[in-house]
Amino acid sequence: MSTAASLHQSRKRKNAVMMTLCVVAAGIGLAWLALILGALLYKGLSGVSLSVFTEMTPPPGDAGGLLNAIYGSIVMTIIGIVVGTPIGVLAGTYMAEYGRFSKLTTVVRFINDILLSAPSIIIGLFVYELMVRPMGHFSAIAGAVALSILVIPVVVRTTEDMLNLVPNALREAGTAIGAPRWVVIRSVAYRAALSGIVTGILLAIARISGETAPLLFTALNNQFWSSNLNAPMASLPVTIFQFALSPYEEWQQLAWTGALIITLTVLGLSIIARSLTGRREDR
């Protein structure tokens, strides 16, 4: 009887210890997030001023802003999204609609999942070999293409998932009134899955707006204002990389401010994307 009671006690103790460890683990996870965001706010906010958004990146030791880098990031992100989204949506449409049970879909899904988590620096090398080397120089368009390659797998994945959630009865209703397949897809399936697909696009924007590695040797960097897509272009992440590793205090401060801008953008986009799908779940 007493051994049974002590066994019960030791099991309860073990349970308490392990569960405490789990709570500690969760605490550590949240503490890291707080620490990183705290440091970013602390170091980044002190450099936020109007000139960050109105002036060019300065030469070493001078004051300035991040205007050309912000502009470059926006331009390349927009081109990347505009190029990557249609391809991703169409591919996802094939996988969920026309080829839902085909062999090709299984293969594409597997390969797409690998592309989704493939190191982005590899994509940078690919675009370097594909575009920069034949063209003979770095260019913003090569950077945008590298970003679009990162967009495609994200959009493919969410589009397929979201179209698969659309009930078949809706499609059958469309077909029953005589609509051809692509009209059913366009006016029924896309409309039903719209918020999910938009979420995918937002997540893709969030992903590429902070990407540095694929831009390092495609778009390179540019100290000056440039809107020429055929020339090197500055971007926020690459500028942060260069400035943070420099010995100049003004540059380091700008790097922190740029990091804060990127983080707020990315977190904002993720939260919007999440609230879009969150509403779906509640419905």
Partner: peptide, 12 residues
Amino acid sequence: LLAGIPSIIYGI
């Protein structure tokens, strides 16, 4: 959200 923070932020 930790997963969404770009890696350059972790770097700096």
